[in-house]
């Protein structure tokens, strides 16, 4: 695969890898295309993402996207985090090979799931795509 240096960096040294005990929201999604799985854990304080961790079962692009996406939403408000698109993640990684674009979708979807899980736990209404 023709991965950018940025992808290789985030893949080899993933940021925010792991899980959060007593997290405020967890999102787990599977990739319809290749069957891979990503899990995002959120710690939320004052509507902001105080901490975030991920676990990923997937390819280099999926792991790098997880790492980059968690970096990008850390410290952001939930609304800001919700708006993070897979395209923005891919761009931040200096691009992904076309066949690997779907891997960055995992990150976007897992973040949405995690935020909705948080909202649900709070008894709030979940958000739509």
């Amino acid at each position: 695969m023709d991965y950018s240096l940025k992808v290789m960096d985030h893949f080899s040294n993933p940021r925010n890898m792991g899980s959060i005990e007593n997290s405020d929201g967890v999102g787990e999604v599977g990739n319809a295309k290749c069957g891979d799985i990503m899990k995002i854990y959120l710690k939320v304080e004052n509507n902001r993402i105080a901490d975030v961790k991920f676990q990923t079962f997937g390819c280099g692009a999926a792991i790098a996207s997880s790492s980059m996406a968690t970096e990008m939403i850390k410290g952001k408000t939930l609304e800001e985090a919700w708006k993070l698109s897979n395209k923005a993640v891919a761009e931040a990684l200096d691009g992904l090979p076309p066949i690997k674009m779907h891997c960055s979708m995992l990150a976007e979807e897992a973040i949405h799931e995690a935020i909705n899980d948080y909202l649900k736990k709070r008894g709030l209404e979940t958000w739509d795509e």
């Binding site: 695969m1 991965y3 290789m8 295309k33 290749c34 079962f57 997937g58 280099g60 779907h102």
Partner: peptide
Amino acid sequence: EYIEGESLLLLLNAKGIFASTGSACNSFSL
């Protein structure tokens, strides 16, 4: 078990070991 082949290949490559995998993620057809 529990891991995906493409990421395994990439990390092996970084150590100068080249291999192959049957993982969907490493095939053109997914």
